[in-house]
Design a protein around this nucleic acid. Structure first.
Lengths: 270, 270
DNA sequence: GCTGGACCCTCCCCCGGGGGGAGGGTGCAC
DNA sequence: GTGCACCCTCCCCCCGGGGGAGGGTCCAGC
């Protein structure tokens, strides 16, 4: 026998294609400890049985699964529940891909040499009491939250008057988390579940309409913002959106129309 | 006039949806400097004209384009060359996706409850002089390098004898960079371009065959490594691969056959 | 003119998931 | 017994930010 089936860290590294330092890190993190540690020297010794675990970690890391999550997956002893945890991640990858697609679309529009002119309308919006759902939401959970809130709103409001809309706190974009309010105008706002009446204050808005899916809506935001700045109107308060034509109305995303209303402080003929 | 078209960093942040700290970082990095800086106070002032640039940066960052690369894109004044640089990135995303797909495939095999038994054969390989291309290669450029090297090899070798193969330094896997040699056996190895004769030393190999695409070849590597360890054979030298059936032979990836040869030190009937 | 509060500045430490290298102890084959 | 590959710990570096401290500035209202 040349070597007992006990592996020094370097051998284990060659067998698993994980770097020596990385193995030490995984040990420190409690992710993949050696089968035995020499107390006198600190030497780590692994066994061949640990190779599959190391490979699983390697693959999960290639999928950018964070180490604590990897730990949770390895801790779950049942292969079925383990598989379930792993199956969770394609979802994450899916949404990642979606984000990428949107960024590419937006980039294409940004790099387009001739931006079409922007139609901006100044509009005085009176105060109104509406049915609303509101919460503090993180940017990456926004879409899911939005879908749920809108569904609840739809179920609760019997006679909607006009298009639904949103008020978005700026903090949502600056810090990735902020207050969001989804509303639906109606004569008598109900109170059911998360749905409750809210009185939106009167505002003066600089309004433009974004056409198509929201992939590149940030570009329209920027153009509207530039317009507001160029026309010397001070800003204040949350941005408003309205959805005259949205996913509820048609599956043809190119037909969607989103009004973006930027609060302006001083509107007058001068 | 309430405000000149000069924007404090906070206003610019609201207009671009970039955090204040992030804007400061971009300034420090020379990526997006403010139009003007008050020397006395250090206050940064931006203009509305900078909004598109900020948005481009925002999108590129969403695509995980590193800041220096973003800078290169922004520096290129010509919209066409800029578009070309940007178009370069979908490629990167593509390969990213490929990596992800491979990791998922490999993971699926790893989590499979009943791994099929491994056929391992001990084989004494005599020394041989072959036509080879070799270089120090990084792991992520391996596939591209490999394709080029193999093509050059194919063009130079007139009468190949047997399947092509590879010698891979372990450092490639441990440190992400290492020496790789691609060879093709032939009676009289030519010397043309990068192709030159190399005498491969004789080795004893533990050989197993991996079936199908290389997505999950690391799993086979691990199984073979475990076998070598369990059978108490010391390892030494670079791992060898041979390609009896590869992409050159058929487009049906499931028909591919890759022999993995793990050098073992002491082979005998005992 | 003064004051308060919102805004801005710089500076330092933190995160994850490693990599590089220093400085020193070990295992093993010759 | 000696050389050398191997192993250990410890600290700093990378990226692209985030948190917060401590202090200066702008401006609207009075």
């Amino acid at each position: 026998m040349h070597s007992a089936p006990v592996l020094a860290i370097g051998e284990f590294s060659r067998l698993t294609h994980l770097g020596v330092r990385t193995l030490r890190r995984y040990h420190d993190a409690g992710l993949l400890g050696p089968a035995c540690v020499d107390h006198a020297t600190g030497y780590r010794y692994y066994t061949a049985e640990q190779i599959p675990a190391a490979q699983v970690i390697h693959r999960l890391r290639e999928l950018d699964v964070p180490l604590p999550e990897v730990q949770r997956i390895l801790r779950s002893p049942d292969p079925a529940s383990r598989a379930a945890l792993v199956a969770d991640h394609p979802q994450r990858l899916e949404s990642e891909l979606e984000r990428t697609r949107a960024a590419v679309a937006s980039l294409r529009r940004l790099l387009q040499p001739e931006p079409p002119p922007l139609d901006v309308e100044l509009r005085a919006v009176p105060a109104a009491t509406v049915a609303a759902v509101e919460d503090d939401v993180a940017h990456d959970e926004l879409l899911a939250w939005y879908a749920g809130a809108m569904a609840e709103l739809d179920a609760a409001v019997e006679e909607p008057v006009g298009a639904p809309g949103t008020l978005c706190d700026n903090a949502l974009f600056e810090h990735g988390r902020g207050h969001v309010l989804v509303y639906r105008p109606t004569a008598r706002p109900p109170r059911r579940g998360r749905v409750h009446p809210v009185t939106l204050p009167a505002v003066e808005l600089a309004v433009t309409t974004h056409a198509g899916p929201h992939d590149d809506i940030d570009v329209t935001y920027g153009e509207l913002g530039a317009w507001v700045v160029a026309n010397a109107l001070a800003v204040a308060g949350p941005v408003r959106e309205r959805y005259p034509v949205g996913p509820r109305d048609t599956d043809d995303a190119s037909a969607w129309r989103t009004e973006i209303g930027w609060p302006v402080f001083h509107v007058g003929p001068g």
